[in-house]
């Protein structure tokens, strides 16, 4: 029995690790708007980019870091719940309820033998009668509300940006909020990478705007708003070692010590 308990516990740790393997997503919320920005990956040069942001309902959406198939299972579940709420009560699923439902579903996986936790972290944004909200969901079964959150590879740099600027964007317009999001996302990039219309996804929901997703060519208008320091990193934290561990985050986290390329799960 002890062994099983130990295994389940470890699986959750692995699941949380899988999130860190996924590319970064950043979420921000004010009272009126919530924004998600995400960095998309393509498995190979000729391949398409993996979708990072999924619309759930007119007022609700998620961004994922980790195993994309698991995220699809969870987003289908959320869509079902949102439709149910619409059909039975004629009201939109509240953002907090959505996050709680996800957490409850994920927690069940952690306490059953033979099951595995979901290998994906989500940022959930939504707008309802209590305003705009941002929740971070983890496969351990926790979901907490934030005004700014970042998950995925090198997300600590994005979080650092948010920690520095969350007071500044508390009352900002939706345009400013997206730019703040892109700034945070840009900070998570490796030195040789930059944001472009192919690898960036943006979504917003809020007071006067349904959940809207910008991809590909629609992203350019937002990238154009980034300051002239260009797509390069802001350079405030060049040591790029501002997170809790002692690893040099300039290295791709997928190439950490002792990790066999073949063992690795495909995370996005």
């Amino acid at each position: 029995m002890m062994v099983i308990l130990l295994l389940t516990h470890q699986l959750v740790e692995y699941a949380l690790e899988a999130i860190k393997q996924g590319s970064a997503v950043v979420g921000l919320a004010t009272k009126e708007y919530a924004v998600l920005v995400a960095l998309k990956r393509n498995a190979e040069e000729l391949g398409s980019y993996q979708k990072k942001i999924i619309k759930v309902d007119d007022h609700l959406g998620i961004a994922l870091a980790g195993l994309a198939p698991d995220a699809r299972v969870l987003s289908n579940f959320l869509r079902e719940q949102a439709l149910n709420q619409k059909m039975i009560f004629n009201r939109p699923l509240s953002t907090e309820k959505a996050a709680t439902l996800l957490a409850d579903k994920a927690q069940k996986n952690t306490q059953s033998y033979g099951g595995r936790p979901y290998g994906v972290g989500l940022l959930v944004i939504g707008y309802d009668e209590t305003g705009a909200h941002l929740f971070e969901f983890q496969p351990s079964g926790s979901s907490l509300e934030y005004v700014g959150a970042a998950i995925g590879a090198r997300s600590q740099a994005g979080r650092t940006y948010l920690e520095r600027s969350f007071e500044a964007y508390a009352n900002s317009t939706k345009e400013e909020l997206i730019v703040h999001g892109l700034n945070a996302l840009r900070d998570t990039l490796a030195q040789d990478k930059e944001l472009n219309s192919k690898n960036t996804s943006i979504s917003i929901v809020g007071k006067d705007i349904d959940f809207t997703l910008y991809d590909d060519d629609d992203v350019q208008q937002w990238l154009d708003r980034l300051d002239s320091v260009s797509n390069a990193r802001t350079g405030v934290n060049n040591d790029n070692n501002d997170d809790d561990d002692n690893n040099d985050d300039n290295e791709e986290p997928t190439k950490k010590e002792g990790e066999d390329e073949e063992d690795k799960m495909e995370t996005d």
């Binding site: 039975i88 009560f89 004629n90 009201r91 509240s94 907090e96 309820k97 309802d128 009668e129 209590t130």
Partner: peptide, 13 residues
Amino acid sequence: DGHSLRAPHIHEY
């Protein structure tokens, strides 16, 4: 979560 059940929701249900 601050989302109270109001008359239209109850009627729909």
